[in-house]
Each structure stands twice: as structure tokens, then as C-alpha cells.
Design a binder for these strands. Structure first.
Lengths: 141, 141
DNA sequence: TTATTATATGAGAATTATTCTTAATTAGGA
DNA sequence: TCCTAATTAAGAATAATTCTCATATAATAA
């Protein structure tokens, strides 16, 4: 996770976005908050330092960041929307017991899937990305 | 997809659920409506034959059916909850262009994943199920 | 540095999806 | 058929998200 302020600024301006305190705060909140925060989590966290930020602003900024590929959306079967600051290709471990979603990076798996779908053509479908949802339970839960 | 009325009845009573017209209608709507209908889709469809069904009833019945493993929930990145009447293990093709979600059955892929995760232990995690989300665009879109 | 302008934000109302509450109804067993 | 627990209708309530628009601000050029 990227925690450097200048680099956060850079990400915004490189994406053609104006650098505003709200956007900085929201982006950094996503990097800091573990486990794929909800909009609500983000709002709560940010209000500590930016008490006046409007919820509408947070939702709008989140949309903008997703649009510019600075963050990703994650959704569970049951849950509300959550956000993920890791942009490298990765998968997720979902806990059936609690609401934990853990990032799961596995290059070997990526390679296997890539090879499999390179050979196996899906007729009428242009493949862009593959995300694996691994469901189960963490021992700690 | 199962379209037989007696078998629908059977599914309900086998799951220990009382057979009511509302449950029959909702379950059959899910079988009939292609492409993973939303609660709204289902309500709209059912109102043609059951004009008085309450939205709350539909949501409650859907929850009950999911709980009894008669249907599944499907999520998208952006979308509201959708429902899937296919209970066999399967994956999904998500279209980036439109809101299409297609079922994707691939036993070869299942086998590859099963073998991979049998050998590759995820420490501290008891694996239950693997679902692959394939994102891309359909030619027709 | 300042002025300009397109862009972003705050405030809160509005909307949408879903859940809850309660009284009335009904399915299925006795 | 009768009884009882389960189910439903109706609509109010809630929660998450979006919208509106007047105001404020960041980036750009002078």
C-alpha cells in the first residue's frame, strides 16, 4: 500500500484530476484502512480530520477514483459496496463467518488461468480479466 | 432450468417450506427470467399474475430460498443484488458494456482449480468454494 | 501574483433498495 | 374439519446512495 503523500498527489494529477484535500484524504483513507472499507468506514475515518466533508462528496470522489482506475470496487454476496486500493491483479478470500475480505495474490494461479483461457476460447466473448473468489472460513473466525 | 410445477412444489416441501402460491411464483419467475433477475425484475414479472404480492414478501421469500439453497445470490461490481436459479457449481461471465451476467459452466476449469488448491494450502483458511468471475465484453454488446 | 474558468464541494433533499412491524390469512398436520 | 405455526399484505421505516445547485477552489494563463 502506498502511503506517501507526494505519490498520492501524483496519482491524482497523472489521472487528470485536480488535487483537492478531500480526494487526498479519501485516497489515503483507503490505503490506510485495512480490509476493504465501505463508504461508511471511509466517511467515519475521514471525519476525524475533515469534519465537514459531505457524504455526497465521498461517494462522488469514490466514483471518480474508480473511473480513473485508482481504486477498485469489491462486492460480496450480501454486503454493500467496498473499496480496494490495491490495483495489482489479485483475488479475494471471503470469510463465510464474518465480513472479512482478504486480498489474495497468487501469480502461479494467474499464470494457470491465463494459459487456460488463452487456449480455451469463449465464443462471442472478449476476455478482459479474471478474478477468483475463494470462499471459506479463517481459523480465527 | 426446471420449469415443471410439481418439481417446484417438491423443492419447496423437501426443504421443509410450506408450499404457497407466492413461493411457487417467485421460484418459477427465477427459472423463467433469464440473466439473473433483480428483486425488482421478479416483482414486476410476478405482478402480472399476482397483482397483490407485496414487495416485502418477495424479499422475504428470496431470503428464505437462498437460505434453503434453492437459489443463489449473484453480485456485480456496480449493481444491486441479483438471483440465480442454477444450483450446480458454476462461474459467471460479466459484460463490461452492459449488465449481462451469463452462467459459465466449465468442469475442466473446476478440476484444475480443485487440484491446484488441494496442493496449495492456504494457511489459516478452510476453503469451501471457488467462484471465477470472468470479465469481458460479448461481441453482441 | 492575480484573474479566469472549469471543476469540485457542501448541505441537505430525494431516491432506491431493502427491512421491519403488525394484523390478518393460510397451509398442512391432527 | 379444525388448529396452530408459518406466511403474507400493507405500508412505514431504514440505510445506502444519488442528485441539485449555490458556493468555493485548484489549475492555468496573463
Amino acid at each position: 500500500m502506498e502511503l506517501n503523500i507526494d505519490s498520492t498527489k501524483n496519482k491524482l494529477s497523472t489521472s487528470g484530476l485536480k488535487v483537492t484535500p478531500q480526494r487526498m484524504a479519501i485516497l489515503e483513507a483507503i490505503y490506510k484502512l485495512e480490509n476493504h472499507p465501505t463508504a461508511e468506514n471511509i466517511i467515519e475515518y475521514i471525519r476525524e480530520t475533515h469534519p465537514n466533508i459531505a457524504t455526497g462528496t465521498v461517494y462522488k470522489v469514490l466514483d471518480t477514483l474508480v473511473e480513473k482506475n485508482l481504486i477498485k470496487r469489491v462486492k460480496t454476496d450480501r454486503d454493500i459496496m467496498r473499496y480496494d486500493g490495491m490495483m495489482e491483479s489479485h483475488h479475494h478470500l471471503y470469510c463465510s463467518e464474518c465480513d472479512l475480505i482478504e486480498d489474495y495474490v497468487d501469480e502461479e494461479l494467474d499464470l494457470i488461468l491465463k494459459n487456460y483461457f488463452r487456449d480455451k476460447k469463449l465464443p462471442g466473448f472478449y476476455l478482459e480479466d479474471i478474478v477468483v473468489q475463494v470462499r471459506g472460513t479463517f481459523d480465527k473466525c
